[in-house]
Design a protein around this nucleic acid. Sequence first.
DNA 1: TACTGCGGGCGCC
DNA 2: GGCGCCCGCAGTA
Length: 883
Amino acid sequence: MLLIAESELSSMMTSESSAALGHHHTHGMLGDHEDPTIFSSRSYDGCGSPAEFHHSPTAQSPTILSGSASDTQHAPHINHNQFSDTRLQQQQQQQQQHSQQQPPVSPQHQWDINDTILPAPKVHDPFCLWPTGHCRRTYRGDSDDARRHVSGWAMRNTNNHNALILKKSCLGVLVCSRDCVLDNGRKVHLRPAICDKARRKQLAKPCPNPSCPGRLELLSCRGHCGYPVTHFWRHVNGSVYFQAKGYHDHPRPDVKSLSEKGRSTFNKQIKQEGSRMLSLASKRRFPILTNEGIPEAKRMSQAQDEVMCSCPPFECICPKSATRQQPMQQHQFKSHPYSLSNNSQAPQHLCGLPRAALPGPDLGLPSGPLAALPPPPPPPPPPFTQINITNTCLPPSASLDLNIPSVEIVKGCYNATNSQIPLPDQHYYHALQDFSFQQHKFNGPPPLYHCNEYLQPPQQRHEHSNKNDKQTKQSYNSRNSKTPVQQDSRLVSDKDRKRFPENLSPSAPPIEHSVEQENQFMLNMMNRVDSQPERNDNNAGYFGSTPEFGYDSLRPDATQFTSQDQDADFLIKLERTVGTSAVGEEKLFNRSNMDSRGTSQHYSDASYVGSTPVGDSSFLYDTISTVFGAEQHLPSDQGVPDLTATTNETMESRETQAKVPKDVSKSPPQMYNFLESEPLAGHTDQTPPPTYTELTSPQRQNPTSDVGFAGVKNDFHPDNQSRLCRLDTNHYSNPPQQHYHHPIHDSTLHNNHIHNFSSHPHLPTPTSEHHMLRNHSTPTSDSYTFHSTAAASVDNSSNPVYCNIPPINHAHFPSTTPHLSCQDPSMTPLNGSLSRSHLGNVVTGSNPSVPYSYPCNDAMFSTSAASQQAYRNRSINITLTYN
DNA sequence: TACTGCGGGCGCC
DNA sequence: GGCGCCCGCAGTA
């Protein structure tokens, strides 16, 4: 529970509650000097508009919403016992009102931190405590948080050799060497000390879990091309410019590590506070808004905010890079029903950057048929009262991880940067994104976990589109001039604090489009390929950024494939379209999308506030996050910590191996998936909160049999809508009857390189299917299965061969895992120079190897086949029971 | 004691 | 030359 409290603090505190970052934080749960309402409000506002930005002591703000360090200590004391749900509710309501009045907060950040001259921001961004992704923000010059370069992440100073730009790199998070689970169901995610010496001491400490003999080990951040995520701060124009590079691939660290004192406090608090603390923590968690709490309007506006990856153009391998190659296409997609630009329900991302930033299936084509068809009005979502989650991979004791940093996995697999993923997959991705279980807690929009990397002007996208473009490099170099820019310490005038007219989000996206529409869309698109104008070389095709699988591949004159291969490609695309667009998914979409982001009115009632932790949807969120985020430390991957080693040795070795992923097999990627969702309908006073039930161990759960897997034809059968994607036919058929997990191979061979499994004698054919299955056995319940199995379909004529649909998590092979079929791994650096898509092989029956472009996310790196396998093996069942 | 920023220095690419 | 990283130093809380 202590960890919960600390985590909450870490999620909501910034500089004024600077203890959150280690300074003067009174360690412990909801310290006596910590007013949860203040924190919650502050956190909320922290990601709000400038007008509502009350972080800085100097900022004008209502008393109740302000909170400097001194304010926190001297404000009317509200301890735990005095904590009022009513007050919290009022706070939430206020925040909700604020959120509905949020103006656009930021213009497009068309700058790079290295630019000689940075444009003066007209509007400042709300402070973001947990930035992740390639995002840029401008903060008020009088923002104490910004001036102090506060971050929820453990960022240490890094010499940038540029006095004008402060550079920091992420230290990662301290985790238990045994990956233990605390009594509260959470894992240990402690904040590494910034000081090296202090951090060494931390690593010498045992796990804060009294019952765990493990030790703390550092899970380093490698979210930026294998290197730690970096933050850049620059003070100029009276503002603070912030730029982040990379996606944190680790959980958020807690406020502060638990020492022995923390342990005792932990136990003491448990005894004294009992369940009340847990309840309180749960209550506090929802209004505690960090980067997730940005109102919809703001996020929509900030869809235009985030621009691009800041990596040097000749070095960048970030996923957005592909998008940069797609200029002038944003507007094309706007008219699409799934237009992310005008999709108010598009998944959002960290720190004000909507997932709407996703370029979506960048068609490179005129709008498809769906674009011309207005989406049918979605039906009212039936409320569901029960959600059963079945984890088919994790044991029942799997922990509930509250510290879920981002949507790394989903991001990597489903952002359209990997443009091979067609529209339905985007839709599927949206479903997963939308089916979040966190946002409703905040009465607000979903978290913004990734900055918009796609809505950059064509010039800038183009600027980074070609790594080898000398002009680009020169341009960058010129921009990267170190010409000193005198710091302007002027404070932002009050006019910047004015409120802007409410920026209403566009209407809900057309969720109710039919699969037939999608199919028709795909067919039409295929038919219209030849009539399309020449593709801009800088534009990545809808189907991919690589010619092999891209738009060009659809053109007979632009591909070197054989006709058979082309057909296979078509089948892949088309069947993906159908296979990943199950009706259940759509229903799921509807239920999550319908009543969430547009209004963000849910869970503002007292019943919500007073809900118990278990009854609260957070449990579901946590469970899902656990499903996809637990077991991050596979013994086979990381090895058993050598407790006999000296502290320094252990730490040094771990740090070394983590910092420089030379031997990728030693440290697997710490990918923490989670699914974002929206306010769930029907949760009112009259509707009891949903309950969530068991986690089923993989031994007890068959990912296929339990959902009634059965083959269906190309249409949806109301009784069984399980689908698989096949390469050889245009039908859907039974999946392999035998699902088994690949053995974990720790050998260097398997860890370092993902071979073509089909050609490996010890590995089954990779069929990285992901399914969203719906079971209609019960009229009042829907069952969905998210699983990316490593199902092995033996390559023979009797078994169908399934294409590699990118699964929900890591079924694709990250970029740093070279695919031998197309690249010599020895020539593939870990952190760059990889093509955006890497060819792999898909076994297609007698056709042994059809070129297939894995939708690799170049920004993601992976380390071992074992860890990838572990992710692929994960699945989750979600059953919704409706009233 | 720890955080923070600065800067020299080194190695790698 | 850029970058990541280490290290030490000084100021601060």
